[in-house]
Amino acid sequence: MDAEEKDIALINKYLDFQLSEKELVSFEKKLTTDTNFFQKLQTYQQSETIVTQAFENSKHQKRTEQWDKILDSEEKLEKKHIPWRWIGGIAAGFILVLSIWQFNNGQQEPDINTRIADAWNKKIGLSYNIIRGENKDSIRQIIRSAFEKYENGDYQKVITKLKDINQTQEAYEDALLLRGLSLYRTGNTTAALQTLDSLIQHPTGRKSYVAKWYEGLIYLDEGNLKAARQFLEIPSDNNQEIKLK
């Protein structure tokens, strides 16, 4: 690498914010002592500006706006923070009232596990049993048959049956959904989440809400409340249902 290329590589590192603390000090010193290098930096920055302005990156801009909103909303949450002793007091009072209510009514309230089970049992987006009258080799009958196996707990058969359905086929998203859920049932959580992720990102978006619902439920099953909350509203009131965000 000749001297010019070394200078450009160093300038690139600087503009990409990749200099270490030590390198930054040395860089700043070089700028003040080497006017030629300073001129190179200015021209390189100018070149970056010319290209950036000509090829404005709308995704970059959208990401900046999105992150700005996220960090602003985080600030608002921090400002609404109530001291922990108040939260403790309110929670204790709530538990007391609840216990008295339960004692009086002789009823057990559904806990979070019951609510999760109820959410799974809704079988949202899985109304494949209504498919009728199709040729047995048609893709929709294949999906229906796979769903029946899923209902019977033959998860490995579902995975095998649907593995060859490709993106160009109708009902590809339904195949992805059933495969994803079956992968989860066979203990392959990582593959299940990846499959549901790809369904969320699928261009048609037809099953993206359903995929988000199940991805949230899987995270809940795994005890990862934080990840689940990206997809689901999980009310603290145990009488309220889990909902999609």
Partner: peptide, 9 residues
């Protein structure tokens, strides 16, 4: 460190 770079720039 990136933030420090960005701030200096």
């Amino acid at each position: 460190i990136m933030c420090k770079n960005a701030w200096l720039l």
